[in-house]
Design a protein around this nucleic acid. Sequence first.
RNA 1: GUCCCCAUCGUCUAGCGGCCUAGGACGUCGCCCUUUCAAGGCGAAGAUCACGGGUUCGAAUCCCGUUGGGGGCACCA
Length: 493
Amino acid sequence: MTSNVRVRFAPSPTGKLHIGGARTAIYNWAFARANGGTFILRIDDTDPTRSTEQNTQIILRAMRWLGLDWDEGPEVGGEFGPYSQTERLDLYREAAERLLAEGRAYPCFCTAEQLSQDREAAQARKDPFQGYQRRCRDIDPDEARRRMDSGEPYTLRIKVPADRGDVVIRDAVHGEVVFDAKELDDFVIFRSDGTPTYNFATVVDDALMGITHVIRGDDHLSNTPRQVMVYEALGAPVPVFAHISMILGADGKKLSKRHGATSVEEYRDAGYLSDAFVNYLSLLGWSLDGETTVIPREVLAREFSLDRISKNPATFDPKKLDWMNAEYINRMDDETFVECILLPSLRDAGLIDEGFDADPSWLTALAAIVRPRTKMPADAAVVAAPVFATANTLVYDEKSVAKGLAKEGMGDILNAARAALEAISPKSWSAPAIDAALEPLPDELDAKKRIVFQAVRVAECGNMVSPPLGETMALIGRDDCLARIDRARSMAL
RNA sequence: GUCCCCAUCGUCUAGCGGCCUAGGACGUCGCCCUUUCAAGGCGAAGAUCACGGGUUCGAAUCCCGUUGGGGGCACCA
């Protein structure tokens, strides 16, 4: 299915891609995919002082990690390029000159001092309108031309038509939003240094690129009537807008550094799965049916719709993100879990090296006990650590030893356990065999189940908390299990 | 100051006039499973639908106002 839907995500490279931007990108991407449209990535770098190439690269990398592939934009090109604003300066100049020639824009020679004076005066006389007072709007065009040619500094301002009534914006999430054109001032579209302003450049780009739907943050809603003025001056069709609410921190304030990680790549580095992250973010302000929470990206790309976007600002909840991540880990197939979570985690923790090789069935058995205990990839290594230790290198947790081993009678328990385990032949060393061997011990020793297994657990794993004993010991191997008991014996009384 | 937006469990949300004594998810709590920890299963608590007026036979849903939050009003984006 193809359609003429064209949407764009247009970050300005003044910083990293943050959570709010990522969510906007996801919505644009999903909307394009769901409608067989085109997803465009454009770099809005009109502010040369704050934009950097490095930030652009970080944003592209984050987009790739999120799995948001763009059809037109940096690196892939497209017939509406170039796709960064610094390369489009001529297009803005052309558009501005046309508007000037048509009398839809005019030069303004007011100085910054003059303007702030006017603003203060308006404030002082409690004028409800505190915008530009239109001093230069009626300067004779010929005189204006002379002053421009003489080198006098000027900006270009849009001329809001005198008879323009209400400006009605069609917004897919807010419905019709009405602004009184009287509130609009003749805002600057070109600075005196010859660069375009944001409100002008974006509209020129969106018009030239044939953008049909503008999905962006709520903070632009109040600017939209100004932009509509530019579309109309340009004679371009006005797109459908969809203004989405902001994402807040737990204190209800706009999400910022104070709330912890805000950039996409911090979440990647923390070990969050791209799929889980995208799923979680997509639900921050959108719902499929109000019931479903696990929504794989293919489903999102098929079912996303603007009319299910919520108007409320959403609070970012790290706990639910964690749950989502665990959910995706739990739903992986074994092979994926081993390749994408377990092995990398073990490597990062230094438990194995690049040349590590293990029997596939052994790895599957390890994965089976590790996976349900893995919320974040790093958890996997923590859980698996005892398996990768040896009797000599195993680290014994002090508290666990004190509580579970260094007590009266523990020596007897370990002796009995050792004997029972030794009775298992190397060939039949397995989880069921180990469980069967250990099972009668409490009765034989007339000791509590809890106490017996706790002692063996600490002896084998160095900790009172571990995955099930039989499975773990099967993975450790018979010889090392026996050796661990020997070592633990010296700690028991 | 002015304009615009928003308002349902702690959080994300469902709800678009009767199906709502308000549904789902996260979190919290309890129980089951169990040698520990998880995972899983079952269940519970939790929202006078911000408040006040209307409209209507009937309102979380429509209208007005109030309050509270947020955003814009720049030669920032």
